[in-house]
């Protein structure tokens, strides 16, 4: 499971442990970068790779759980907590806030490596989803204003006629717009377009039933 295009960030105040973890990961073919405090980690420039954050709960500047809360807003690698004396409330809280695992020192290499692996997989998926969504957004941005009006009506399941009436245009015109939308959004079918719209969180404005009334 040697993965070259991944990286692990180690944040622990104990130098011996940082070295040991780095050694262990290196022995398993995983690249790692050590940080001795949360501040160092925040300030450092980090490579844009699928990654995992190995975070000690007890840190000299701010608590590991606090750091998790702080970075929760932005895009960050999944976290694996390690602690000297873990208590239940802390671990529950950490997992609740999206930590991949909560390891108590001393921990076995398998537990660590599994946790790191799952975290990297999770990160990789997250990154792919993020990239796809970005592409969809880019496409959506290329739509003309009228097409952006047409899209929600179409994905709501309205008939062309209904959608045209809704916008006060002719059905033929609507069909042209609809074809353009399908094309621009690279949707192979209406179902595909509906899925894309969902991903883009475009609200469904009218149900067919409502339109019938």
């Amino acid at each position: 499971m040697i993965v070259d295009d991944t990286i692990v960030f180690i944040v622990d105040d104990d130098e011996a442990l940082r070295e040991a973890l780095g050694e262990l990961l290196a022995a398993n073919g995983v690249r790692s970068v050590p940080f001795k405090s949360a501040g160092d980690y925040i300030d450092a420039s980090k490579p844009d790779l699928p990654a995992c954050l190995l975070l000690d709960v007890e840190l000299p500047d701010i608590n590991g759980l606090e750091l998790q809360r702080q970075i929760a807003q932005g895009d960050h690698p999944p976290i694996v907590f390690i602690t000297g004396h873990g208590d239940i409330p802390s671990s529950v809280r950490a997992i609740k806030h999206g930590a991949v695992d909560f390891l108590t020192k001393p921990f076995s290499d398998t537990a660590l490596l599994e946790a790191i692996h799952s975290a990297i997989v999770q990160d990789r998926e997250t990154r792919a989803k993020r990239a796809e969504l970005a592409l969809l957004r880019q496409r959506y941005d290329e739509l003309s204003p009228r097409e952006r009006e047409v899209l929600p009506l179409v994905v709501s399941g309205l008939l062309n006629k209904q959608a045209a009436a809704e916008l006060g245009i002719r059905e033929v015109t609507l069909q042209i717009h609809r074809r353009n939308v399908m094309q621009k959004m690279a949707a192979s079918s209406l179902a595909d377009l509906v899925r894309i719209a969902e991903r883009l969180e475009i609200p469904i404005q009218h149900s067919r039933r409502m339109g019938g009334t």
Binding site: D14, A16, L17, E19, A20, L21, E23, L24, A26, A27, N28, E58, I82, G84, H85, K105, P106, F107, S108, D109, L112
Partner: peptide, 27 residues
């Protein structure tokens, strides 16, 4: 708790290093 932490810390390092060592030897 403090004693535990103090002891656990080097122990965790010992464990991690042991695993690494084993890994280097078995590679």
């Amino acid at each position: 708790a403090s004693i535990a932490h103090e002891v656990n810390q080097p122990l965790a390092a010992v464990v991690a290093n042991s695993h690494a060592c084993q890994r280097w030897l078995t590679s």
